[in-house]
Design a protein around this nucleic acid. Structure first.
Lengths: 333, 333
DNA sequence: CTGTTAGCGCTTTCAG
DNA sequence: CTGAAAGCGCTAACAG
């Protein structure tokens, strides 16, 4: 039903080529310009992006593959990604993997079939196999927040290991020796942060007994159960490092329920700062990621690959730095 | 570079029509079936959805127009919407209005030009004017969470006014008389909840002095500043109703900072339950919305309009019920 | 600057 | 059941 370029042709008597050219920013006689403008207005003409995409082989759409759209962390990241894309004239086709690798695999194919110009992926899987269809179809992919062990794709992220290592100094320098960790072994970020933790402890000559290592998933449940378990130990740790937002929430829930207090009974160090942690008592020390920069860099790198034909083709990691948001959740021993 | 149906034609010797028919579930001789399957596999053929869309005039994509993708509330809703769409074979093209009406207007046009089959809108604007391009292009729209005064579009939501009215009974029946409100006059939901509040107070014969009415936006800042203001009044209220998630967060931040306690010094009633409120002290009484049902109903209604040609055409409101999540933030006077 | 022509990759008549 | 041919709405040569 909507007007097409042919309707404009009939209305103005001009040729398709002239109209198309003008509509795409080309030059035409002022007289024709007016004619076209008038027809466009009267007919409420809007380009059919589908038809355009078929011939240009560009959709000006970037596919976003996100492990979970529900997580507040990804929400904030997507906001920045979307803003950066919008400013450069791109839209985003978001697919939610619901933390499920099978769904993720299907979603990836869906994006490729939709002919997105590129993909920004916050993957569930820890290997890049599922990205093969994109590679085959020559669709560039930039990983965001989460990387794979083999650096086959561009990736924009923080140095999770180092960020954790440095944050741990806060606990160690304040004389904590019995430090436990609740982390994820399922997610890339959780594993990296775990390594940073272990390194920091090793370098400080501190032992981490098995019972101090809660190594599950990035979930509220893991934080909750993990903290309960730690608090019930005979030899209770004096401090706990929690490797992400959800774990931190869950852990604090457990502390509240069991009647312990932080930092009196237990000191806390978390990851993924959000405004929310201002209103919790205590205010938790948190490693904060530069969300806007992460989104901006991912978009820049992807559009570079899409728009510059002669871009440096080798995979590239962009690693941004973090800061430690201080609070009052750590007691000096 | 990817294989097309023509490549399959050359490989199998069959005609385009036959291949297309089979690929779309039609019947062909078993012999040909095998040939096509083999070719598809060898060539890694995948349909070009763009080309298909151009001829079928269906993209199997639903546009999502969301006021802010950053809000945890919308994140959860989008998760459910996405899941429901995926199960029915649709994808979602999400555009983020960043709480800005101008962006929203442009985004709407973008979706229409992208030829989405339908749109689910969580609008910023409080009037439906900006949706005209969708109407003109015959793209069905279902509003979600937020409605307009004139019921021109389908809408799936809760009864904000009644939900507030009923929740207020909890405060009123526990003898609170000096009850303040922090709400939004910018958003539809805020205004409706404000009305429900006023009605409840009126019916209880309770007065709401001007200084008890903080009427700004749904933001952490409004909650924070509003609560500070209320706490500094000479004639302090004994209870406060907060009209959404962000306001509740901000208000609790203010309470924590000023050293007051809830429920001892002030009783609290909020809106938009989230797991997070379990770990705050006190646990706030919250009106909880049926998120999954909201998403499911929005998708069902939209797909009905898209797929059933002879659907009841008149705009329809689907209003779901809420429940009150109890906590310990209300003192009985 | 303008117009003609030929597709993009697919589905869909309509004959055979 | 199969194939030939037309065309979705647009852009991209290439002439004029």
């Amino acid at each position: 039903m909507p007007a097409t370029i042919v309707d404009i042709k009939e209305r103005t008597g001009l040729s398709l080529a002239t109209i198309s050219k003008y509509l795409n920013g080309g030059n035409v006689l002022p007289e024709n310009k007016e004619k076209i403008d008038a027809a466009v207005k009267e007919l409420h003409y809007e380009v059919n992006e589908i038809a355009r995409g078929l011939v240009t082989k560009k959709t000006r759409t970037v596919g976003i593959l996100v492990y979970s759209i529900e997580s507040p962390f990804s929400g904030i990241l997507l906001h920045h990604v979307g803003e950066a894309l919008r400013k450069r004239g791109y839209g985003m086709l978001i697919v939610d993997s619901c933390n499920d690798e099978e769904i993720e695999e299907k979603n990836l194919k869906y994006l490729v079939n939709k002919k997105v110009d590129g993909i920004i992926a916050l993957p569930v899987a820890s290997k890049g196999d599922f990205l093969t269809p994109a590679k085959k179809a020559d669709v560039p992919v930039v990983l965001l927040d989460r990387s794979f062990t083999d650096a086959e794709y561009d990736c924009v992220r923080i140095d999770n290991r180092r960020a954790t290592y440095n944050a741990m100094k806060e606990l160690i320098s304040r004389n904590h020796k019995k430090i436990a960790i609740i982390a994820s072994q399922k997610e890339y970020t959780g594993r990296e942060r775990y390594k940073g933790f272990i390194e920091a402890m090793d370098d400080a000559g501190l032992d981490v007994p098995e019972e101090y290592r809660i190594y599950g998933t990035h979930s509220i449940a893991n934080g909750y159960n993990g903290m309960k378990q730690l608090l019930s130990l005979e030899n209770r740790p004096t401090a706990v490092f929690m490797s992400n937002y959800e774990i931190t929430l869950g852990a604090m829930l457990a502390i509240n329920e069991t009647g312990y207090n932080s930092p009196e009974d237990i000191s806390l160090l978390g990851f993924d700062y959000q405004l929310l942690f201002h209103i919790l008592q205590p205010q938790v020390y948190m490693v904060e990621q530069p969300m806007k920069q992460l989104g901006d860099h991912a978009v820049n790198r992807l559009l570079q690959r899409i728009e510059d034909s002669d871009v440096d083709d080798s995979p590239m990691e962009i690693v941004l730095s973090t800061r430690l948001q201080t609070g009052n959740s750590i007691k000096t021993l």
